[in-house]
């Protein structure tokens, strides 16, 4: 990595951290402080321990960081003003978000264990979707835990990459166009669901066995191991392929970024 690339990574990481702290501060205010103050005012019972125990930090950070990865154009503007190429911006953004999302998941995992130890919070087995779906495959609990940690981190990487891709696609459009696309997508989604539901009620169609087979394959379902949990190798492979695809596509899209009249 060149000095310039390192500086861009530092610049973007700092910005994302600042935005992340800002969002977390509001969540803390809205999720803990505000209900606490409200309970003082109304005289209702408020359980702070319960509130802390219920915080799902990992998934929360997962979503927030994904949302922050959607924002591309404002960073691009300031970087292009400062003589940074689109490729360097992409590279730095990917590195920054991989680092931040990985770190956030490590913090999320540690938080689960810390809360379990101190406040009798939910165990990792119930907390982790991976453990619930694929945990039965492993005979060794430590290996299952390690794999689920890895999965949590890898999935956060891929989610961030996917969000970078979506954000970069939206950055190609003007604010007005983005609003119209957003409205069109919501309309399409609602109409699509209604049409599907209506079609199902009228004709009672079933999903093709080919589609089910593909989904089973992607999920790691194997008839021979049925009942013992799904094969956990496939979701890792799926994630890696999807992550690479998202990364390459976002680079291709970002290479078309240009300054707009807004």
């Amino acid at each position: 990595m060149t000095v310039k690339e390192k500086n861009v990574v530092f610049f973007l990481s700092k910005r994302v951290f600042r935005q992340l702290l800002y969002v977390l501060m509001w969540l803390l205010l809205g999720g803990i402080v505000f209900p606490m103050v409200l309970s003082f005012i109304t005289g209702t019972n408020y359980n702070l321990v319960e509130a802390i125990r219920n915080i799902t930090l990992g998934p929360m950070l997962y979503i927030i960081i994904g949302c922050l990865a959607l924002l591309s154009y404002s960073d691009f503007k300031i970087l292009i003003q400062n003589g940074i190429s689109r490729r360097t911006y992409w590279k730095a953004k990917v590195i920054a978000f991989l680092g931040i999302s990985g770190l956030s998941q490590v913090i999320g995992i540690l938080y689960v264990f810390l809360i379990r130890q101190t406040l009798s919070g939910t165990g990792w087995e119930k907390y982790s979707l991976f453990m619930q779906i694929y945990g039965g495959f492993f005979k060794n609990t430590t290996v299952a835990y390690l794999m689920s940690f890895l999965f949590a981190i890898l999935s956060s990487f891929v989610f961030s990459l996917f969000c970078i891709l979506i954000g970069s696609i939206f950055s190609l459009f003007t604010k007005k166009q983005r609003r119209l696309i957003f409205l069109a997508l919501i309309t399409l989604f609602v109409v699509g669901i209604m049409t599907t539901a209506d079609g199902y009620n009228r004709y009672g169609f079933t999903v093709s066995s080919k589609v089910i087979n593909v989904l089973n394959f992607l999920a790691g379902y194997d008839k021979s191991t049925a009942g013992k949990g799904l094969n956990p190798t496939m979701p890792f492979i799926d994630l890696i392929i999807f992550g690479i695809f998202s990364g390459i596509c976002s680079l291709k899209v970002m290479k078309h970024f240009k300054i707009r009249n807004e």
Partner: peptide, 10 residues
């Protein structure tokens, strides 16, 4: 897309 060259332009 050349950082080195772009770093010489403002």
């Amino acid at each position: 897309e050349n950082d080195e060259a772009l770093g010489q332009l403002y």
